[in-house]
Structures are given as structure tokens and as C-alpha cells.
Amino acid sequence: MIKVENVIKNYGSVEALKGVSFEVEKGQLYGLIGPDGSGKTSLFRILTSLLIPTGGKASVKGFDTVKDYKSIRKIVGYMPEHFSLYMDLTVEENLQFFATVFNTTVEENYHLIEDIYKMLEPFKDRRAGALSGGMKQKLALSCALIHKPDVLLLDEPTTGVDPVSRKEFWDMLRKLKDTGLTTLVSTPFMDDAELCDEVALIQNGNILTIDTPANVAAKYPHKLWKVETENNYKTLKALDNFEEKISAFSFGHSVHLATNDNVPEKAIREHLLKSNIKVDKIEPIKASIEDVFMELMR
């Protein structure tokens, strides 16, 4: 449904995309996972025909993003990174506006947005500018869906949204997937990635790996430990001269430590005690996508 072949995008001497290739099958919920500045937005702008790639080519439903830009704009539902609906129009007016621009009506495609719009309906006379972040998100999604697109392109839809709304939003995406909609979604949040059918990890304009979230996590090559101590910073410092260490990163209240396979728990505990660090818990854990990402970026 979406095909990206060796796409390069340069802004002057800055290389935003250095030859990116991936493919999204029909009906997939596909995640593009990467930190800020990794090239996600450039890729979305190329796919929506707003940008012309410096090299390579991309197509959506067989339409070339450069040659067939007019067709692309009819079949794509796009939610840009920044909220870009009319703040001074109401919820209902925004929806009607975008329906009309696509030569359709809200009534005709209401079934597509019904679940989402129901949550917005109490505020339908409120101006978009006065909505909360989560509500804005829902409105933007409704507007992107109102013309019954074949492909939904969502550029960091959950950035700046509270955790509850974020979860709701992903539930909606799963439901939309069940209707057969193809969705490409980008996010800097690794836990969003686990909800996708397939993910591509992107960093500095390069794709690091492409697989299902489970396989990506399974690809982790080392033994991984979760180390809980009184102080992450001291722990990381103490682990600097731990011979068996491959990598160590701070993860919330604990430290994720990667070691060679044959290292026993006792060795880690003793090393930390030598540095006078009080250890609460050390346990082996399964790697998450975030761990894989950190490993790939190393």
C-alpha cells in the first residue's frame, strides 16, 4: 500500500533521509519509531506529496508521490505533527470544512468517525482552539478520516498528549485497523511501538531495523538485567568499570544492564556492593523495543 524505495532528502548540506526503504501492506498498522530529528516528518511530507525527494521514489496505493500528487491527495488522510485545523472555527465547522473540501459530506462518512466523534460531540460548538490536547487530537483524526481515505498518515499524533488520551488514541487506531484501513504512524515513544503490527526503527535518516515488535525485541543479543538501587547515577558510575558490562542505561527508577551471557547475578551485586551501593533488586528481564533501540544506536 505504501512503498518507499531508497528515498533521500537533503536540505542544503543537511541529509535528512539517507536512503530509506520500507513497505507497508494493506491493512497494516505500521509504526515509524525514532527520536526527534530522525527524519520522520520529512518522510511524511514526501508521502503526502508536500516535499519532493532528492533521490529515490515513494508511492501510495501505486500512485507516485511526485507524478501522481493529485491522486495521492484524494486517498490520503494526513495528520501533521502540529495541530493544523482552524482554531477559530468550531469542532463541527472544521469537520464540515474538510468534508466539503474533499467533495463529500459529514453524513456520508459519519460511520467512519462515529466512535471518535461521539466523544467530541458534547463540544461540537466549541472552537477548536479551546479544546484540550487530547480532544484536538481526536478532532484532527476525525478530519483526516472524514473523506474515507485509503491510507492514514499520522505524524507523531501522541506527542504532547496525556497518557490516558494516548491510550484511547491507540485503541482507536486498532479499531480503525479492524476496518481494513492502512495506517502509517510515527512516534518517539517506544511503548507505542508495541501496539503496531510492524515497526521500522529510524535514526539519523537511516532505517535501523524492520520487523514485528515481538521479533524486534527478540533480536536483542545480550543478557539483560534490571538493577534497582538507591541511586541510578551512582550505579551507572560504578558499572563503568564492571568488566562484564556491555551497556547500561537509566530506565526510569532502574538501570538496564546488558552483560555477557554467563554472568551470574551475584557478580553484579558484589561489584555494586564494592562501590558502597545499596542494591534493592537485580533481576533478569526480557528486552523491550526501547532496549533494542538503545542497542542499535550504540
Binding site: L50, R73, K74, Y78, S84, F102
Partner: peptide, 8 residues
């Protein structure tokens, strides 16, 4: 304008 530009 970005949203509008991606419409037909």
C-alpha cells in the same frame, strides 16, 4: 495551510 495543501 499544511493540512489544506494535502487536500484535492
Amino acid at each position: 495551510i499544511e493540512q489544506l495543501n494535502v487536500t484535492p
